[in-house]
Design a protein around this nucleic acid. Structure first.
Lengths: 105, 105
DNA sequence: CTCTTGCTTTCCAAAGCGGAAAGTGATTGA
DNA sequence: TCAATCACTTTCCGCTTTGGAAAGCAAGAG
C-alpha cells in the first residue's frame, strides 16, 4: 500500500552533482560522518570537500556539528530531515527516469 | 536469482548530466525519438538539444538517423547497444548509492 | 530561384568545478 | 608562553560545461 519512492519525486540539482550525491549517499547510511572520512571517501582535496558540504549545509540539507569536547574539534556531518527528504525525492525521480530500463527490479 | 542491476555498475559523467540523463531515459523507453520531440521534452533550445545529442553520439551512445525517404529529412535518435549498456550501468551505480535509503524497493 | 524548414555550428556570458595556497581559530608540545 | 600543528575555511585561479542567440547550411516546398 505504501509507495515511498513515487511520492515527492523531484529532481534536485544540488543533490545531483556527483560529489554531493556521494556525500548524501554516505550520510543516509552512516547517519553521521567525520569531515576527514567524507573527504577521503570522495578522494578530493580538503577545500573541495569543505565547499560541497557548505553547499549542502546552505541548502539546509546537511548539519555540521563541531562538538568541542576533549581534544581537537572535529567536524561531523549529518543529513537533516530536509536533506533526507531531498535525497529521497531525487532518488525517486531518478528511479522514475530509469523505470523504462527493464521490468522494475 | 538474477541480479541485473549490480553487474556493470559504473558512474558515467556523460550520462549523468541532467539533460542527457533525460534523453537516455526517453530513448530507453521510446526506442527512438524525433529531434523535435526530444528538444520539446527537455524544454531547451535547438542548439542545446543538438549539442547534447552530439555528445552522446560522439560517445557512441546514441545513433542519429536522417532517413531521406519522402518529405523533409528529420533526425531520429536511438540508443546504441553501448548507450543502453552505459545507461544501465549508470543507473545501477545510482541504485547502489541509493541503497541505503530504506529497504531496497 | 527564393523561402522555409530542420537542424548544426559559432559566439558569448554565466556558472561550476577542482586544486593550491593563504587564512583562521583552537590546541598542543617545548 | 609561544611557536607549531591541526582541522578546516576561504580565496584565488584556470579550466570546463552549460545554455541561449544568432549565424550557417543543406534540402525540399512553392
Amino acid at each position: 500500500m505504501s509507495q515511498p519512492t513515487t511520492d515527492g519525486a523531484k529532481f534536485d540539482e544540488i543533490v545531483h552533482a556527483p560529489n554531493r550525491l556521494q556525500i548524501c549517499a554516505l550520510l543516509v547510511t552512516a547517519d553521521r560522518a567525520e569531515f576527514a572520512a567524507i573527504r577521503d571517501s570522495l578522494g578530493v582535496a580538503d577545500s573541495v570537500a569543505s565547499k560541497h558540504l557548505k553547499v549542502l549545509a546552505d541548502a539546509g540539507y546537511v548539519k555540521l556539528d563541531k562538538p568541542q569536547g576533549e581534544g581537537r574539534v572535529r567536524t561531523w556531518a549529518s543529513l537533516t530531515k530536509e536533506g533526507r527528504r531531498a535525497f529521497a525525492g531525487h532518488v525517486a525521480e531518478l528511479r522514475r527516469l530509469a523505470a523504462g530500463l527493464d521490468v522494475q527490479p
